[in-house]
Amino acid sequence: MGRPRSVVIDYGMGNIHSVSKALEAVGHEVATADTPEQWEAFDPTHLVLPGVGAFGEGISRLEKAGWAPILRKWIADDRPFLGICLGMQLLFGESHEFGTHRGLEIFPGAVVPFDPTKGKVPQIGWNEVRRCATHPLWDGLPEAPDLYFVHSYRVQTSNGAIVLGETDYQGTYPSFVGRSRVAAMQFHPEKSQRAGLRFLKNFGAL
């Protein structure tokens, strides 16, 4: 198998530089694309949807730039996909961040806020992700590695089968989800030193 050719989608939601550099560090050939045309020209084998910031802004930018149908088809075809942080949340049904917004509805569930009366919000820092299902992305990683989080909202889902890892902060929530070659993580692998890079390396092998 050759090097993974990964496109990092640039839809104006935060720092894509770090994600690109981290993917390169573990052997991906990387291009960033802010239009679907650029994506087609690169002919990727892997697709990465990063992002930080507000859900509503994120989904409307994806729709406006024409990414939403491409993502839905790519995922329906079970091609290698990785969502990071907001890029994970957008895969779910809906969010109530600044009004109600529909997501890409790949996975059932909703995006809900942490409660500032129960602990500090946002959650910023290193927290454990406990493995709760086997998946090739877990290869070579410990049962509960520490990974870097920074977020004020989290997902909840009725489908336990997609939960690959979970984290405790104001209760237990899914911090790593996926099925087959489609995966998404609430933490930032590109900011999580060795463990984070290992996830990105494993993603390249999907």
Binding site: N15, S18, K21, H188, Q193, G196, L197
Partner: peptide
């Protein structure tokens, strides 16, 4: 590009445009 750890940047940042530039450079 070579340190995969969260970065905070400060000192004299005065505008939304400068915040954007810092984040685009790789600051978290």
């Amino acid at each position: 590009s070579r340190v995969f750890l969260p970065l905070t940047v400060g000192g004299g940042i005065r505008s939304v445009d400068e915040i954007r530039r810092a984040l685009n450079s790789g600051a978290d």
